[in-house]
Structure formats: structure tokens, C-alpha cells
């Protein structure tokens, strides 16, 4: 297996990476772990003219600053998996990364690379949207922040401008009685997801829902924020019946794209099941109840 020829340079800082990308023209691409891009290059589905290797552009830092979890774009999936700081502040990340690929992919793949790739089944994309993350990017025009919900446009397409590179991802860490859940079903552990559902729930002292977010991943061309459909839960105690209604409504309305291994209707049914499980699990965790698992889609 041989990719098409390309040039390769290393950037020792983010500004240098931006300069190199700008000089490389529109076929220049950033490479960090390469776990998404390189398979496409090997199969000749991608043929960048220049690879700018950013793996030495910054540290793989994980910081908790002012109610924000700030991850360097170079933080690897395995770093997330084993970080107590992440587990304590944004457990949905910890839960989601175990679904990614295998131990090798998790050791090379980075959060910045995963988000910038724009692959619609990417677990971290779904989590970023569900947790309201902000993506910090640096480009020829300077630094800007993109809400994760605005980053993903369609298959392998993001709102990053040419010459822009993701440098960090920021996750809000709200206090209070809050719970989250990430649910995924793939035909085989580590494979591309058939359906993902990510939910966060905040409760008041009386166990009534203060806020709820629900995002469905892997069924459309990008993560789909369906929080609006969950609004009936607000002000209520979250129970199976109400959640079931929300989940069915979400499933009925969501646009489901094709998949090699499953028909649209089946995946629509899974949306309903996983959305329900994600909401109930998140609510249980918010209530601080003994962890009740409403069924985890993972085979592993």
C-alpha cells in the first residue's frame, strides 16, 4: 500500500504550522496522529501535496482552568482514557474514547485531529457538540473560537478556513447536579459506529430537570443536536415514559444516512433506543443514584 507522493515538514509551534500550511497551498494538510487521514491516503482517497506534522508543535496538556477543561489539540485518545482530571470534569469524554478504534488508534489519534477531520461517526465530535465545547483555532488571521456545534459542516468538511489549525478544545465544567452519558452501537467493538447518542442532564434539588442536551452522532453527515426535542423534560422528573416519548420523537424526525452494515429503519430504531438510554443514564447519574446502566451498546 502506497500513498501518492507528498512533501513533509514538521512544525515546532502552532504559528509555524500556520505559516507552513499557508505556504503549502490548498492541498496542504495537518498531520498529528494520522489515524484518520493516513488510511485514506493509503487507499488513495486523499492525496495531500504537503503534510505539516504538528506533533511537536505543543505539549499534550490537560488543564482545568476556571470551570473549563482545556485540552491541547495534541491530546491523544489514550491520554483522555487515563486522565483522572478528564474523568472528574468531563466523564463523557472518558466514556466515549473507549469506543474509538483499538489500542493502537487510541495511542496515536488526537482530539484535534479527530475534530478537524470532520468524519461523521467520530465519537469526540459528538461529545464536543453535546458538552458545548469550543474549538480554538489559529490561522493566518489570528486566533478564533468556534463552538463545536458550528464546526462540522458535512462529511469530512468543517468550517475551518484554509491555513487554520485546531490548537485546543475547551469543555465547560458546570457545577451542580449534572450527569452525562455516551451510548454507542457498532457491529464490532472499535468499528465505525452505527449510532451514537450523547446526553447531559442537570437536575434541581427536587430532581426536576433544569436543562438537558441530547446529540445524535453517526447517523447523519455530522453530529445532530436534538436538544430541542428533549425540552418537554425540563421542569419534570425524568422517567422512562417521558424519555421514551422524546426518544421516539427524535428517531422519527432525524435524517438517517446510508450505512454499509445496516438499513436506515434499523438505525432509526437504534436512535430511539440509545437516545432513551443516554437520557435515563445521564439523569440517574445527575441524581447521584447508584449507577444504573440502562444497557450499554458496546460489545466490549
Amino acid at each position: 500500500m502506497y500513498s501518492a507522493p507528498f512533501e513533509y515538514v514538521r512544525a515546532s509551534s502552532w504559528p509555524e504550522a500556520v505559516d507552513l500550511l499557508e505556504g503549502g497551498g490548498e492541498d496542504a494538510r495537518v498531520i498529528a496522529g494520522g489515524q484518520s487521514l493516513v488510511p485514506m491516503m493509503m487507499l488513495r482517497l486523499a492525496a495531500p501535496s504537503l503534510l505539516v506534522d504538528v506533533s511537536a508543535a505543543a505539549d499534550r496538556s490537560v488543564d482545568l482552568v476556571d470551570a473549563e477543561l482545556v485540552l491541547s489539540a495534541l491530546v491523544r485518545h489514550a491520554d483522555i482514557e487515563h486522565s483522572e482530571v478528564v474523568r472528574g470534569s468531563c466523564p463523557m469524554l472518558t466514556e466515549a474514547v473507549t469506543h474509538i478504534g483499538n489500542v493502537r488508534v487510541r495511542h496515536r489519534g488526537t482530539i484535534g485531529g479527530s475534530l478537524a477531520h470532520g468524519e461523521p461517526t467520530a465519537e469526540l465530535a459528538t461529545v464536543a457538540v453535546a458538552e458545548g465545547a469550543t474549538v480554538t483555532v489559529l490561522g493566518p488571521g489570528g486566533e478564533r473560537a468556534i463552538p463545536a456545534g458550528d464546526l462540522f459542516v458535512t462529511h469530512f468538511t468543517t468550517s475551518l478556513e484554509p491555513g487554520e489549525v485546531v490548537t485546543a478544545v475547551r469543555f465547560p465544567v458546570p457545577g451542580g447536579r449534572r450527569g452525562s452519558s455516551f451510548q454507542e452501537i457498532a457491529r464490532r467493538a472499535g468499528d465505525f459506529a452505527l449510532v451514537e447518542a450523547a446526553a447531559t442532564v442537570a437536575l434541581d434539588e427536587d430532581d426536576r430537570c433544569l436543562s438537558v442536551r441530547l446529540v445524535v452522532g453517526a447517523v447523519s453527515d455530522r453530529p445532530v443536536d436534538v436538544s430541542q426535542a428533549a425540552r418537554p423534560l425540563i421542569g419534570e422528573r425524568i422517567g422512562e415514559d417521558a424519555v421514551g416519548e422524546v426518544a421516539r420523537a427524535v428517531a422519527a424526525e432525524i435524517e438517517v444516512g446510508p450505512h454499509t452494515h445496516a438499513g436506515r429503519e434499523y438505525r432509526r430504531r437504534l436512535v430511539s433506543v440509545l437516545a432513551g438510554r443516554a437520557l435515563l443514564t445521564a439523569a440517574d447519574r445527575a441524581a447521584g443514584a447508584v449507577h444504573t446502566d440502562h444497557g450499554n451498546g458496546a460489545r466490549a
Partner: peptide, 27 residues
């Protein structure tokens, strides 16, 4: 497989498992 899926090409890079088929030598 050349896709990073099967694990046949696994080597340890600085002690960690990687797909040698999906890693460029220059890296």
C-alpha cells in the same frame, strides 16, 4: 490490511503499540 484494523503490523513506538502501516517513516 493496510487500514489499521487487523493489528498484524503492530510495533511498539517508544513503548506504545502503533500501526506501522499507518505511520510514515519520517514521523
Amino acid at each position: 490490511c493496510g487500514e489499521g484494523v487487523c493489528g498484524t503490523c503492530t510495533v511498539l513506538l517508544d513503548g506504545e503499540p502503533v500501526n506501522s502501516c499507518l505511520t510514515f517513516a519520517v514521523q
